[in-house]
């Protein structure tokens, strides 16, 4: 399954949310990384076909995808960013309803629901009304819903929002296992969600994306640009206004500050190994020109 996003644009009134977005996906996990308001959800809504673009195409295996394309919809799993539930439905009602929407009935639906609720640890809460679930439980129910039809294309919009660290790790493992022979796109503004599982990542900012690259290459691209240096608190307050600071650790009476910078920021700065988080900050903190 090959998905090609070609020159997609979208306006909300005067506001341009997407501006000529293009990239390609085949099997594997893809990260869509960008700050709030970058256009991630807009792009995803167009990709799953619940919103129309103002320009551009989504191609599936080289063919234009039309909104009426049932075949595409049958292969799709989608977790929207905002997720609400019918007040009169229990978790089980909800999953059965979505299963029916996806064309799953009878024994096939029941066994799938059973397996998935075990994976997302909701078995004991299935008979409760899902409006009363906690934020994390709702999201896990949302994830289960997206996986019901064994989708070839799984699209998750900020799937880890509201999950605790333990749930996050479980979720990552679930996606990793699931992603074999499938295409998974995962949007987030949290770097740690994708740095270990996304083989490729595309950065999005102000409705524009850069090149789809392997996640590691973003890290490699800033090799030699990450530094550790020490300064006092007063110095730090001044310094952070015009520098990218990715971390601060208090050590004795001084601060150990992690700086991302093209040039060595000071004579005593020591080079450090870059992480995806450093790369993210580097990409999105540039103020001049097209960052991505």
């Amino acid at each position: 399954m090959k998905l090609t996003i070609q020159n997609i644009s979208k306006n909300y009134g005067n506001k341009q949310a997407l501006n000529g977005v293009s990239f390609e996906m085949e099997n594997g996990v893809y990260g869509l990384l960008g700050p709030n308001g970058a256009g991630k959800s807009t792009l995803i809504r167009i990709l799953v076909g619940v919103m129309e673009a103002n320009g551009g195409e989504v191609m599936v295996n080289g063919k234009r995808r039309k909104p009426s394309d049932r075949d595409y919809r049958s292969k799709l799993g989608y977790l929207p960013q905002s997720l609400d539930f019918y007040p009169e439905f229990s978790g089980l009602d909800y999953l059965r309803f979505v299963a029916a929407l996806k064309g799953l009935e009878g024994e096939a639906a029941e066994s799938k629901i059973k397996a998935l609720t075990e994976q997302v640890h909701l078995t004991n809460d299935l008979h409760r009304k899902c409006v009363n679930y906690s934020g994390g439980m709702k999201r896990r129910l949302g994830i289960a819903q997206a996986l019901l039809n064994d989708p070839e294309i799984l699209i998750l919009d900020e799937p880890t929002a509201g999950l605790d660290p333990h749930e996050r790790i479980k979720f990552r493992n679930l996606v990793s296992i699931f992603s074999r022979n499938r295409t998974v796109l995962l949007s987030t503004h949290i770097v740690s969600d994708i740095d270990s599982i996304a083989k490729e990542t595309v950065m999005i900012k102000d409705g524009k994306v850069g090149r789809m690259e392997s996640t590691q290459s973003f890290v490699d691209a800033i090799a030699g640009k990450v530094w550790l240096m020490k300064m006092t608190v007063d110095e730090l307050v001044e310094y952070q206004n015009d520098h990218i600071i990715s971390n601060v650790i208090p050590t004795g009476d001084k601060m150990e500050v992690r700086v991302v910078s093209d040039t060595k920021p000071s004579a005593d700065a020591a080079a450090a190994a870059p992480t995806l988080e450093d790369a993210y900050l580097y990409e999105f903190n540039q103020t001049k020109g097209d960052a991505v």
Binding site: R45, V48, G49, V50, R70, R73, S74, L76, Y78, P80, S82, L83, D84, F85, Y86, P87, V98, A100, L101, K102, G103, Q145, N149
Partner: peptide, 12 residues
């Protein structure tokens, strides 16, 4: 209830 996004991209 914010269900349209799930409904509209489902087969049925």
């Amino acid at each position: 209830d914010d269900m349209n996004s799930i409904i509209l991209c489902s087969l049925k």
